[in-house]
Design a binder for these strands. Structure first.
Length: 202
DNA sequence: CACTAGATGCTCT
DNA sequence: GAGCATCTAGTGA
């Protein structure tokens, strides 16, 4: 449980917690080995007041983890192929998720490359689907407790100077397309490019 | 680099 | 059946 206190900010709302997750390290130990990634880009998804969130319409079998206590992992399947991970935030009973969009590999580069195949170096962990694949995250990891020292865990990283934190609209969402709830570390090559959804409503 | 189109299969209506 | 919290491969400048 060492380090758990460092993540007390996760019990705050998604938008407040998201930028503070930058610089933390997500570690995944599996039978294949270890991959650790320093988080460089996240998006905040609030629940009831955020129409872009999976939890906007209330709990379902898929999104139930987001309504639980902070510090757990919400995993969803995107576009049929990709596994994407969120760190659950806000108080128990309030839905909030921090989508892990990109990271910098700090350990296990060879294993990550094995999982990702022959792609450009910067594409190893650029984008939520790629990041999930590099870390070896699947639906089986959904609901995992990240602050209990298990094989899938969050660790404290080097603090990120506030001046290096940037924000802007979230990638690919068709509702609430303009709220600046995406946060990233300025100058990080792993940060994914902005793409506006082709079907923005509102 | 900017832009476009299509694959893919799951979730919810 | 509609709609995706994405990615890759194609084009063209």
């Amino acid at each position: 449980m060492a380090g758990s206190a460092d993540f007390a900010f996760l019990s705050r709302g998604a938008v407040e917690a998201a930028p503070r997750l930058l610089g933390s390290v997500l570690v995944h130990e599996s039978g294949d080995g270890v991959v650790a990634v320093r988080i460089t880009e996240v998006e905040a998804y609030a629940g009831a007041y955020d129409p872009a969130s999976h939890s906007f319409r209330g709990p379902t079998d898929r999104n139930r983890v987001m309504f639980g206590p902070p510090g757990h992992l919400y995993v969803y399947r995107s576009h049929g192929i990709h596994w994407c991970g969120n760190v659950v935030a806000d108080l128990d009973g309030v839905a909030a998720g921090l989508l892990l969009r990109a990271g910098e590999i700090v350990e296990g580069r060879e294993l990550a490359r094995l999982r990702r195949g022959a792609v450009a170096e910067r594409d190893l962990t650029r984008g939520p689907g790629r990041l999930g694949q590099a870390l070896g995250i699947t639906g089986a990891d959904g609901g995992a407790a990240l602050l209990d020292g298990g094989p899938l865990r969050l660790e404290t990283g080097e603090p990120v100077p506030a001046a290096q934190v940037r924000s802007g609209p979230r990638v690919g969402v068709s509702r609430a397309a303009d709220v600046p709830w995406r946060f990233w570390i300025d100058g990080e090559p792993s940060v994914s490019p902005y793409r506006r959804s082709a079907r923005v409503r509102d």
